[in-house]
Design a protein around this nucleic acid. Structure first.
Lengths: 198, 198
DNA sequence: ACTGACATCTTGACAATGTAAAGTTTTAAG
DNA sequence: CTTAAAACTTTACATTGTCAAGATGTCAGT
C-alpha cells in the first residue's frame, strides 16, 4: 500500500522545502509541510535529515552554492573590465541574488539556527566567502597597503555590498516589494564614497 | 487564590521577555516561557499583546528606542569633532550596540515576523533611521553633490556600518563569541575605502 | 531461490506551543 | 450597592517536532 522506497526522497524533500520556503517564508517552513508537499508521511523527513534544523542546513548549502555560482558567473563575465567596474558589477550581482532569491538569502544570513558544524555547510559557506575575497583582491594590485589594512578593507568593501543588500531586503519585506523604489535595486556607484570619505 | 490584577503586567512581561530572549535567543522565546517567568498563567500574555508577534513587536520598539538613544548619546559626545571622526565614532557605537545587545539587534534586523503596521514600531523604527541620516548629513556640508547622489551616498555609508555589524554578528553567533577576534569589534577606519575606491 | 540483515517509509504517540473560549476575580463607575 | 468592564485563569484544541515501533522493500551471501 505505502509508497516505500521513493528513490531519492532526500532531494525530493529539499525541492519541496524550497517550494514551501518560497511560498510561506522561513517561519512557515515545517517538516510536515515538506513531507506533505513531497507526498510522504509526516515523519519521513526525520529519517533523511536529523531534524528541522538539519533540513534547513542542507537547504542553506544549496543557497550558498547557488550564491557562489551567481557571483562566479558575473565575475567571469567582467574579467576584461577595470577592477573597479568589476567590483561594482559583482556587487550588483550580490544585490541581484538577494532580490531574486530573497528566501535563500535570508536563510544564509538571517539568525536562523543552522548547524554550522555540518561539514557540507562549512564547506559551501567558506567557499562562497573565498569567492568574495577573490573578487576584491585584484583591486589592491595597484595599491600599496600593508596586510592588516588590506584585510580590513576587504571586509569593509563586502560590508557595503552586504549591508546594502540586507537593508534593501528589510525594506522590501516590511513595506512590500512593490513599495520599494525600483531604483533601490541598483547598487549605487561605490565611487561616491571615495568622493565623500577622501 | 489567583494573583489577579498584577498592576503592570504588560511591562512585567516585556521585562521577562527580554530576559528569556537573552537566555534562549529569539527562537527560544515563547509566550508561555514569558508567562512562566513573570509568574502568571500561560494565556495571560495574549490579553496584553494580541499574539507572539505582538509581543515581539513591542520588544522591538524597546530595541529601536535604545538603539536610537545609544547613537544619540555618542552623537552628542563627539559634537565638537571633525565630521569624519564623528561618523567613525558613531559607526563604532552602532557596532558596539550590536555586540552589547545582540538579541535586540537580531530582533530589529533579522527576518523575525514583526508587525510593521504597528504605529509604535513604525514610529520608533523611523525615528532611529532619522538619527542615522542626521549623523551622516553634516558630512556633506563641505561637499558639492546633487540630491540624488547625496541620498545614495547616505545609504551607502550606513550600508557599510550595518553590513559590518551584521557580518560580525553572524560570525560571533556561528563560531562563538570567543572565537571572534577581539579586533573585529573595532570598525575599521572608513578612510581606507577612500584610498581604495578613489 | 531463500533467508536474514538492513535501509526506508508509515503509523502512533507525546510534549510543547499559539490561540481561542469560557469562567473567575478584581476594579470602578453610576 | 449594583453591575459592567477589565484582568487574569482554566480548559480545550490544532499544529508542530520528535521519538519509538511496526511494516515494507532491497540486497548480499548462501
Amino acid at each position: 500500500m505505502g509508497d516505500y522506497h521513493h528513490g531519492d526522497l532526500a532531494n525530493a524533500l529539499l525541492q519541496s522545502a524550497r517550494v514551501v520556503l518560497n511560498e510561506k517564508g522561513i517561519h512557515g517552513l515545517s517538516l510536515r509541510a515538506c513531507a506533505a508537499h513531497a507526498g510522504v508521511s509526516h515523519a519521513a523527513p526525520t529519517h533523511h535529515f536529523k531534524s528541522l534544523r538539519g533540513l534547513l542546513t542542507e537547504l542553506a548549502v544549496i543557497a550558498y552554492d547557488e550564491f557562489a555560482e551567481a557571483l562566479q558567473v558575473e565575475f567571469k563575465n567582467v574579467a576584461h573590465e577595470h577592477p573597479k567596474i568589476r567590483l561594482q558589477k559583482v556587487g550588483q550581482a550580490y544585490v541581484d541574488f538577494s532580490m531574486k532569491e530573497p528566501r535563500l538569502f535570508e536563510l544564509m544570513f538571517s539568525s536562523t539556527p543552522l548547524d554550522f558544524e555540518n561539514p557540507r555547510l562549512k564547506n559551501s559557506a567558506s567557499y562562497a566567502y573565498q569567492q568574495l575575497i577573490g573578487i576584491v583582491h585584484p583591486l589592491f594590485d595597484t595599491k600599496e597597503m600593508n596586510e592588516d589594512h588590506r584585510e580590513q578593507t576587504e571586509v569593509l568593501v563586502w560590508s557595503i555590498v552586504h549591508g546594502y543588500a540586507s537593508l534593501l531586503m528589510n525594506e522590501s519585506e516590511r513595506y512590500g516589494a512593490k513599495c520599494t523604489d525600483e531604483s533601490r535595486r541598483t547598487l549605487p556607484d561605490l565611487g561616491l564614497l571615495a568622493e565623500l570619505l577622501g
